[in-house]
C-alpha cells in the first residue's frame, strides 16, 4: 500500500495543512493583532486618556471587544466550523476543501490571538510607556515604537503557540472535508481502519509542530536584546 500514490497523498496533505495553518495564522493576526492592541490600550491599566470622554470611550470599546472575544472563544471549534458555513460560502464560494477551511480557522484563531497579543503587550514595563508619554508621544507612536518593539519576543512566542494551535484545529477540520493531514487521518484511520496511515499522519503532524515551534523560539531568542 505504500505506493507512490499514497506518498503523494501524504505530501499533498502536508502541503494543504501548512497552507491552511499559515494562511489562517496570517489572517488571524490581521484581525487579532489590532484587536489585541485595542484590548491593551483601552483596558483600565492600559494607556490613559486625559479627557473624561476618552476614558468613557476606552471603557466602552474594551467591554465590547472583551465580550466578543469571550463569546468567540467559548464556541468549540468543530461547532464553529459548521456554524460559519454560510459565511465561508459567501467568501470562498464553497464550504469544503483547504481554502474554505481557512475561514473558520481564522474566525476561531483571531480572538485567541487577540488575547495573547493583549497579554504580551501588558508585559511591557509600565515605566517605559510613561517615559514615552512624558516625551509627548501620542497613542500610535507608543503602540508602534514602544509596545510592539518591547513586546517583540513575547509576541513571537505567541505566534509560535498560535501556529501550533491552528495546526491542531486544521486537523479537526478534516472531519468535515477540510483537506490536509487531518482529513487523511480520519478517512483512512477512522473510516477504513488503516491505522498505519493514521499513525504516519500523526508523526508528520508532530514533526511539523516541533519544527515550527523550534523556529519560532529560535527567532524570538535571537531577536531579544535583553541579554
Amino acid at each position: 500500500m505504500w505506493d507512490n500514490e499514497m506518498i503523494m497523498m501524504l505530501v499533498e496533505g502536508t502541503r494543504d495543512t501548512l497552507y491552511m495553518t499559515l494562511m489562517a495564522t496570517f489572517f488571524g493576526y490581521l484581525f487579532g493583532l489590532p484587536m489585541g492592541i485595542a484590548l491593551m490600550v483601552t483596558d483600565k491599566e492600559g494607556l490613559r486618556s486625559h479627557s473624561a470622554l476618552g476614558q468613557r470611550m476606552h471603557a466602552v470599546i474594551y467591554k465590547l471587544l472583551d465580550v466578543i472575544v469571550n463569546i468567540a472563544r467559548s464556541i468549540p471549534f468543530l461547532i464553529l466550523l459548521i456554524l460559519v458555513i454560510p459565511i465561508t460560502k459567501a467568501i470562498v464560494g464553497k464550504s469544503y476543501g483547504s481554502t474554505a477551511t481557512i475561514v473558520p480557522l481564522t474566525i476561531a484563531a483571531a480572538p485567541f490571538i487577540a488575547r495573547m497579543v493583549e497579554s504580551s503587550l501588558k508585559e511591557v514595563d509600565r515605566g517605559v510607556i510613561e517615559a514615552a508619554e512624558s516625551m509627548g508621544a501620542g497613542m500610535f507612536r507608543i503602540i508602534w515604537s514602544v509596545l510592539l518593539v518591547e513586546a517583540r519576543t513575547s509576541l513571537l512566542v505567541g505566534v509560535t503557540i498560535a501556529i501550533g494551535t491552528i495546526l491542531g484545529y486544521s486537523a479537526m477540520a478534516g472531519a468535515v472535508g477540510g483537506g490536509g493531514l487531518g482529513d487523511i487521518a480520519i478517512r483512512y484511520g477512522y473510516h477504513r481502519y488503516e491505522t498505519d496511515v493514521m499513525l504516519v499522519t500523526i508523526v508528520i503532524l508532530v514533526l511539523l509542530v516541533q519544527i515550527l515551534q523550534s523556529i519560532g523560539m529560535m527567532l524570538s531568542k535571537k531577536l531579544d536584546r535583553r541579554r
Binding site: S49, H50, G127, V128, A131, E150, R225
Partner: peptide, 26 residues
C-alpha cells in the same frame, strides 16, 4: 487639549529611578 499637552511635554523632560529605557533598542 490632549494635543497641546503632548507638545508642552516636549519642554518637560523626565528621568526615572529605573531609567525606563527601551530594552530592545540600542
Amino acid at each position: 487639549s490632549e494635543k497641546e499637552l503632548r507638545l508642552t511635554r516636549r519642554d518637560i523632560g523626565m528621568i526615572f529611578q529605573h531609567f525606563n529605557l527601551l530594552m530592545q533598542k540600542s
